[in-house]
Amino acid sequence: MSSRDRILQNLQVPNSLKKESSQPFQDSSIYSDYPEKTKEELIEAFRAHFLALNGEFFHVRSKEEAAERVAELLHSVEGNRYLVDSNPLCRDIFSSVPELEKQFDDITKTSLEAMEFAEYSIGLTSADFLVARTGSIVLRSSIAAGRRLSVLPPLHIVVATVEQIVPSLDAALQNSEFRNGEWSYGTIITGPSRTSDIEKILVLGAHGPKRLALILLDA
């Protein structure tokens, strides 16, 4: 008998635990801070949480304005190598400012060894969802061009549209389109990398990005 079968066999015992009905719960019934539904309220809830988590938040009205914010962020870091995934939203933003696009290396067109990857100071990605209740960004490897782009560079810039805001996490996790498709990795990002391992003092930028910036575009 294999170990697998032995373990499974050991688990075959009558079960006496109180049977609770396993109705799928809804976030709206459990969380008192479940945000209201209007778009403005969702944006506001997201913004408040994201800022409280030390995120850098930019609400922009146009692609041009978005491009301006990206350009400003480039100036705010040391180093001059920036990486981007090639997603429609980023391309859209770059389309108005081709000089900006040139400053970025497209990850899908560059094969990077780990050591070289570590020299980039900005990773620019889009997102799957923004979660209003917690100020989180949900991101899959299929749209963030893999796993490293959003975690190795010290500044992670995310571009997203207001349409991508959902009230709470369940909306994202139950979305079948999100769950389908070929991807191996997803992450819920809630603020920049942090630690409180030393005397409970909060320090940003433990191993992941020290800074997390969100450029939120009115669609």
Binding site: A114, R148, V151, S193, S196, A206, H207, G208
Partner: peptide, 11 residues
Amino acid sequence: NEGNGRLGMAC
């Protein structure tokens, strides 16, 4: 919280 897990699963 730190991102070390993410790096360990990415690199």
